[in-house]
């Protein structure tokens, strides 16, 4: 059985306005997303800004309560669980945030920050062991020096802060990590370090990961499987190993084509997408991508193509993909 099952997850944010502060519209951030994550794998989620990938992550750690659909973790439905019921889930599923400059409380030293989490989620372990020792161990695991514990976040660089953010997530001793663009705010050289750190930690702690990014190259390098999202929908799901060969959906192909290539003589298939992403306030009736799709047919804008299994381990939401 898969570790995480997501079924038709929806997140619609109400927009209030007018005289009596009524709900005048909804932002359709996530529209019925379904997928499964197996224990021990790394699932990538890719898409452009505003496609709902971060909202999906926040729904899965219940920072937002989904407005529709459900997700089950290890067989238990946590979609609408309350604060007490979520306690166990929160110690097992943690999140790493995007911006290392705003993800750490500037008034807490690293020691205070980690100690608080350890005492909160692992009080029994903390009775047996010295908490300071546990903090030091964590700090060293994420590749920081032991004298870092008594410093404040502003004394660190972006990459170091991201390591601290990872240490904070690990302080709960989780088995599942949702990493929301953990490297997109970092320099390229630091990105590789943090990705390698995540890979090492995955092996050491036996973690399962959802890795959210807008960078297909990073996903390709790092993940086992990838979900491509467009305007709140999953448009394609495929194995990373054969990403270039098996990508079928025109949006995925466009994303792949947008990647710079590293040899001057190589030529790439370049599809420059024109137009804009449709408004998330009122979605088009057909395929959300139809308006920008180079191969769209009339039926694409009339009905929405379902996400179908095209081959084993490959799903795509497109009428024109075989």
């Amino acid at each position: 059985m898969s570790l995480l099952q997501v079924e038709g997850l929806e997140m619609h944010f109400p927009v209030r306005g007018g005289l009596l502060n009524r709900v005048v519209a909804h932002v359709h951030a996530v529209n019925g997303v379904s997928f499964e994550v197996q224990r021990g794998e790394i699932l990538g989620v890719v898409g452009e800004s505003g496609c709902g990938k971060s909202t999906l992550g926040k729904c899965l750690v219940r920072l937002n309560t989904p407005s529709g659909g459900a997700f089950r973790y290890d067989g238990v439905d946590y979609t609408h669980a309350d604060h007490e019921e979520l306690m166990d889930y929160r110690s097992r599923v943690q999140m790493v945030f995007q911006d290392p400059y705003s993800s750490l409380n500037p008034r807490l030293t690293i020691r205070d920050c980690l100690t608080e989490v350890i005492l909160f989620h692992r009080p029994h372990e903390a009775e047996v062991r010295d908490v300071d020792e546990m903090v030091l161990e964590l700090v060293q695991k994420v590749g920081l020096r032991a004298d870092a514990v008594d410093k404040y976040p502003h004394e660190f660089s972006g990459g170091q802060r991201q390591r601290i953010g990872i240490a904070r997530a690990l302080a709960c001793n989780p088995e599942f990590l949702i990493a929301d663009e953990p490297v997109s705010a970092l320099d390229v050289s630091i990105q590789a370090q943090v990705l390698n750190l995540l890979m090492d930690l995955k092996d050491e702690f036996g973690l399962t990961l959802i890795f959210i990014s807008h960078d297909l190259k990073v996903i390709e390098h790092f993940c086992d499987r990838v979900l491509v999202m467009y305007l709140g929908n999953v448009v394609e799901e495929l194995e990373c190993e054969t990403l270039h060969e098996s990508a079928q959906h025109p949006y995925t192909r466009a994303l792949l084509g947008a990647n710079p290539i590293n040899h001057p003589r190589e030529r790439r298939e370049l599809t420059v997408l024109e137009g804009d992403v449709p408004s998330p306030f009122d979605l088009p009736p057909g395929c959300a991508f139809a308006g920008r799709c180079p191969i769209a047919e009339p039926r694409c804008s009339e009905s929405r193509p379902p996400l179908e299994e095209k081959r084993s381990g490959h799903r795509a939401a497109c009428f024109l993909v075989e």
């Binding site: 926040k58 999140m95 750490l104 409380n105 008034r107 909160f120």
Partner: peptide, 28 residues
């Protein structure tokens, strides 16, 4: 809306703890 406050709720801290330990000290 900052990520460290969201991180605190993702960790599962209660609202009072987040307010008094993570939010109010930052308005000092």
């Amino acid at each position: 809306e900052l990520e460290y406050v969201q991180a605190a709720s993702a960790i599962g801290f209660g609202r009072a703890r987040i307010l008094f330990k993570h939010v109010i000290p930052n308005t000092a």
